[in-house]
Amino acid sequence: MAVIFGIQLTALPADASASASTTTPKALRGTWFEYRGEGKFNIIKITTHSFTTNGKSYTPSKKSDRKLQVSKWGSWYLFNKSKSSSKDLGQYKATKQLIGGSYKRVLIKYRGIGTYHVFPSHKYEHKYSYKVLD
């Protein structure tokens, strides 16, 4: 029982509000596209003080769970880290990935166990997202 309780405690995200910022990192700023299929895209737009995804905007002036909070964990940035998975926007980092024979800038979103969503900075009608665990 103690082992199960210990695992649950480590699985819960820490409250990031004490060290959270409302300024997004320069490396993550821009408009990012994930191909969904049939000519449709998921779009993330990150500016200095805003994060927009699926038509929902998060800024420092918003109230409650739409108020922008950015914290860093290792090489990843967490947006609106919360104990509630529905309010947590996931973890992000910018990197380069081989696309069409050359390395292109991409935004990687990690949310859930082993699922990585890849958002290139240009619209490509190819899905680059992947899972490492099934």
Score class of each variant (00 low, 15 high):
82 S>K: 09
23 T>S: 11
37 G>S: 03
30 G>D: 02
85 S>C: 09
46 I>K: 08
42 N>Q: 13
78 L>G: 06
99 I>L: 02
125 E>R: 02
45 K>T: 15
103 Y>M: 09
24 T>M: 01
44 I>K: 00
31 T>L: 06
113 I>R: 10
94 A>Y: 01
76 W>F: 12
101 G>W: 00
54 N>H: 05
97 Q>L: 09
38 E>C: 04
3 V>L: 04
121 S>V: 12
127 K>N: 11
127 K>A: 03
119 F>W: 00
6 G>F: 14
119 F>R: 04
40 K>M: 14
77 Y>T: 03
80 N>W: 12
42 N>H: 09
5 F>T: 12
107 L>H: 03
51 F>A: 08
48 T>F: 02
69 Q>E: 14
16 A>H: 06
87 K>N: 15
9 L>R: 12
93 K>T: 01
34 E>P: 04
85 S>G: 11
17 S>P: 09
23 T>W: 06
32 W>I: 07
88 D>E: 12
4 I>R: 04
122 H>M: 12
13 P>W: 01
69 Q>Y: 14
53 T>N: 12
1 M>I: 03
91 Q>W: 07
99 I>R: 01
24 T>P: 01
72 K>N: 08
33 F>P: 00
41 F>V: 08
131 K>L: 02
22 T>R: 01
101 G>Q: 00
13 P>M: 09
21 S>G: 13
52 T>S: 06
34 E>K: 14
100 G>F: 00
45 K>A: 05
38 E>F: 12
75 S>M: 13
100 G>D: 12
116 Y>K: 08
119 F>I: 01
29 R>D: 11
22 T>S: 04
102 S>M: 08
98 L>S: 15
108 I>Q: 05
65 D>P: 10
96 K>P: 01
23 T>P: 09
119 F>M: 05
8 Q>C: 13
108 I>L: 12
82 S>D: 10
18 A>F: 09
73 W>P: 05
19 S>W: 09
74 G>D: 10
93 K>G: 00
87 K>A: 09
11 A>P: 06
29 R>K: 05
49 H>V: 08
90 G>D: 00
134 D>R: 15
42 N>M: 12
43 I>L: 03
44 I>V: 12
65 D>A: 15
31 T>I: 02
106 V>H: 02
84 S>W: 03
129 S>Y: 02
129 S>I: 04
39 G>K: 00
11 A>F: 07
48 T>C: 02
80 N>F: 14
20 A>S: 13
31 T>N: 00
18 A>R: 11
16 A>E: 13
43 I>W: 06
61 S>F: 11
47 T>I: 04
41 F>W: 01
5 F>M: 12
134 D>A: 13
17 S>L: 14
100 G>N: 08
